[in-house]
Design a protein around this nucleic acid. Structure first.
Lengths: 214, 214
DNA sequence: TGTACATCAGTGAACGCGCGTTCACTGATGTAC
DNA sequence: TGTACATCAGTGAACGCGCGTTCACTGATGTAC
């Protein structure tokens, strides 16, 4: 029986889809032990292949790590993009939803988040990684631009600055108070509320009003 | 010749001050290879003692790591406190100086900073660590309270929230754009300016005015 | 359709290495009297 | 002041272990004709 190699490619030669299986196993280990706490050898044991098998798919351990970070940024960009939803139902709500999506990703995907931001990978380690990272940031920038466009010409802040501020604030809250692991610092309020409040104050400072009840 | 054990304690038994030497060597390694990239064995080689020597000073590798983080938080608190300078010459300037001191610490002491925030140590790993961390945060809180006190009663935000916002923003900017190692993301403006602008916008949102020229 | 060959994912044994930790010890320093 | 003893920081050899990586290989799948 012959199978087209395009027909889903479910079953491959021996394992079927070792690349994916290695990535998933590595994510499990990263989730538990951190980005530095997984070994190529342990990954192969988890998947049930020989220790030499991964070398058909990744040049070395670092290449696997970088690939995981790239995949993480791609998923991240999707989540942020979904939350932005082209600025619907209104620009301000969509903007805040992007912030919340940022936190949600850090909490529900701590392994990806760690690979992306805590693995000490130079952001420009390779082209695909840099590109995926840029695409995620582009969502923040797009959302900032849309909000800025609603301000009168003379009151418009630089969009790059504004999006970097939102990124830094989201990342700061996520990595200090909103992480999904033991290194989370406990504070007496949910990180979601903390970020929402920060964004409201910040936007207020930019002259972007809202109907908040304090 | 007899020496009082309180007279500085410069020269000890064999090495003199092995605890300090181990910490310094570990910091060098963390600076170069990250918090996960140093080994007890390598530290002993750097110092020139036998591999068993550190066990007289630290229970194990993790204890050394935690001690470094604690020392880091203590130095950090000092730097922030110096910058705050009891709110002199004026509250707003002192407040901004604290933010700048935060960034400066992350940049000039990347090894301490990594041990404090990127070693995946649970913040309450031990009492001394938690206490040192709390003391550093207390400076941010004190500075926030002083600024808040200048606002009319009915416009005062919660001091805890405000100080967590400033912490998150400083940490976000420091760890994304202001780090002293390869993982720094390049942006076309100095992190110091980015933080200064963020603080001004944020304070503006709280109704804390200033004479900034944009 | 059948056959011979090419491809290549995964094998399994082996390598040299550095790791954390232990142990009984040594010898310099501190102290009791 | 001198002596005998206690303390304890640092030694050095040894341990078992898991690591990343290599290598010639095997055998399932794909393909040319």
């Amino acid at each position: 029986m012959r199978r087209s190699k395009h027909a889903g490619g479910r079953r491959g030669y021996h394992h079927g889809n070792l690349t994916e299986a290695l990535v998933q196993a590595a994510l499990d280990l990263i989730r538990e032990y951190g980005p530095a706490g997984f070994s190529f050898a342990e990954v192969t044991r988890a998947v049930g292949v020989s220790p030499a098998a991964p070398y058909r798919h990744f040049r070395d351990r670092d290449a696997l790590m970088a690939d995981i970070a790239r995949r993480g940024f791609e998923r991240f960009a999707e989540k942020l993009s979904d939350a932005w939803n082209d600025g619907q139902p209104d620009t301000l709500s969509a903007f805040k939803a992007v912030g919340q999506a940022y936190l949600a990703f850090a909490k529900t995907e701590p392994a990806y988040y760690a690979a992306m931001f805590e693995a000490r990978l130079p952001p420009d380690a390779n082209r695909e990684l840099a590109q995926a990272s840029d695409q995620a940031f582009a969502i923040l920038r797009r959302a900032s631009e849309a909000l800025i466009a609603e301000l009168p010409q003379e009151k418009r802040p630089p969009a790059l600055m504004m999006s970097l501020h939102i990124w830094a604030m989201s990342h700061g809250i996520a990595s200090l108070f909103g992480r999904g692991d033991d290194a989370r610092r406990k504070v007496p309020m949910p990180p979601e509320d903390l970020l929402e409040a920060a964004i409201l104050v910040y936007l207020d400072g930019l002259g972007i009003g809202d109907d908040r009840e304090v």
